[in-house]
């Protein structure tokens, strides 16, 4: 029962975040790149003011799977690295924390673009 409630929260919050993105697209007609940038910045901001973890506690994947989570990891990495490494952390923190995601996106994109070609649309 509890696990079902957990998943319901994930669904509701994740869906709401995505619907917010769709609302932005409809009302302002902006491109998908700008949507992604906006949500990454929201994530960075939420982490910077130390709110993200509270949301993440009950929203779980609902906030971590949207690109907001990516932004939060960038900021979390930078903050953590500054605390341990000092000034150097400003430069190393963000990308270290998100290295997995970025490397995966680049690596898989490279492999699949060698295998597949773009399809005609109907």
């Amino acid at each position: 029962m509890e696990i079902f409630l957990d998943y319901l929260w994930v669904f509701l919050i994740g869906g709401a975040v995505c619907a917010l993105g769709e609302l932005l697209i409809i009302t302002t007609n902006i491109t998908s790149a700008r949507i992604l940038v906006t949500f990454v910045l929201i994530g960075v901001f939420l982490e910077a003011i130390n709110v993200f973890d509270y949301i993440s506690d009950f929203a779980k994947a609902g906030i971590n799977v949207p690109i907001v989570g990516f932004g939060a990891s960038l900021a979390k990495g930078a903050i953590g690295a500054v605390k341990t490494h000092g000034f150097l952390g400003i430069f190393t923190g963000g990308l270290t924390a998100t290295a997995g995601g970025i490397a995966a996106a680049i690596g898989f994109a490279f492999i699949f673009s060698l295998i597949f070609r773009s399809h005609t649309k109907n």
Binding site: I25, N29, T31, S32, S118, H119, T120, K121
Partner: peptide, 11 residues
Amino acid sequence: RFPLELGNQRP
């Protein structure tokens, strides 16, 4: 415009 495989909606 955009690559064919990009998952965006047409206005």
